[in-house]
């Protein structure tokens, strides 16, 4: 089926700005679901609040657009209520790691079978460009005109440390890789985290003179590399992409661990 067939057409075109990366992630997620061959009725998408979270409404699955930061908690209830369903949680970086940070680490600790796709645009898009826990130190936001003082999280390290059994990172530029990683994440039984470096040209790009969507995606191309790549010897600042953790563990259930 074409991607369009998974969308609620009457609500499109979507609200995202020209060049925003979130639409690329939505498209990749749909391709992954198509690739796995899941029926629409088998998929639940639970999102929080943010530009990225608007994704839920456009998708022709069972969808829930909830509260800022709380999507993983709602998703936990859906998953435990219907363990046979595939539950995917599209999140913003602020949504997942600031207000929702506690739910994030606990979902990872439980290793509950959910797939969190975190659109890391390093900013709060929906509220107009304030800093997030993923905004690198020194970068500008509307609440940090002289540059952000707080250090950022390393999302991959955080997810690993908290216990997620699948952790991956990619970008909106690497669209084929994006689809493949989301596919693997959904197939994985356990808490899967896919960090997708996504662009917010409207706020993050503009405030930090990173250019439009195209320029920001070139940045993802030029400033990332595959895990273990030799390129990092010359340029240690390159951000690694790939699958960092992919472990088979017994499937979580609150009544105790069950064999798969």
């Amino acid at each position: 089926m074409p991607v369009k067939d998974y969308l609620r057409l009457r609500f499109l075109p979507h609200i995202w700005c020209p060049g925003c990366g979130h639409g690329i992630v939505m498209s990749g997620m749909i391709r992954a679901i198509e690739e796995i061959g899941l029926e629409k009725n088998e998929v639940v998408v639970v999102s929080g609040i943010g530009c990225s979270s608007r994704m839920a409404g456009y998708l022709d699955f069972h969808t829930m657009h909830t509260l800022h930061g709380r999507a993983l908690a709602f998703a936990t209830g859906v998953k435990l209520g219907r363990p046979d369903l595939t539950v995917i949680v599209p999140m913003g970086d602020g949504d997942a790691l600031a207000i929702g940070g506690n739910h994030f680490i606990h979902a990872a600790r439980r290793d509950i079978d959910l797939t969190a796709v975190i659109m890391n645009n390093r900013i709060y898009g929906m509220t107009g460009g304030q800093g997030s826990p993923m905004t690198p130190q020194g970068m500008r936001s509307t609440t940090a005109p002289r540059g952000i003082a707080d250090a950022a999280f390393d999302l991959v390290e955080l997810a690993k440390g908290a216990g997620a059994s699948f952790v991956a990172r990619t970008t909106t530029f690497h669209a084929t890789e994006l689809t493949r990683m989301i596919e693997k994440a959904i197939r994985h039984k356990g808490f899967s985290v896919v960090e997708v470096m996504s662009q917010c040209p409207t706020y993050y790009g503009r405030q930090n003179r990173l250019g439009n969507g195209v320029e920001m995606m070139k940045g993802f191309r030029d400033n990332t590399t595959s895990i273990g790549s030799k390129k990092r010897e010359a340029r240690p600042d390159l951000i690694e992409r790939g699958i960092f953790v992919d472990e088979d563990r017994p499937v979580y259930s609150p009544e105790g661990l069950k064999a798969d």
Binding site: P2, K4, L7, W16, G23, I24, S27, T172, A175, T179
Partner: peptide, 13 residues
């Protein structure tokens, strides 16, 4: 098909 994969607006197929 790269244009289709990267279009944020599902506008090119």
């Amino acid at each position: 098909g790269l244009c289709e994969l990267r279009c944020p607006d599902i506008a090119i197929e």
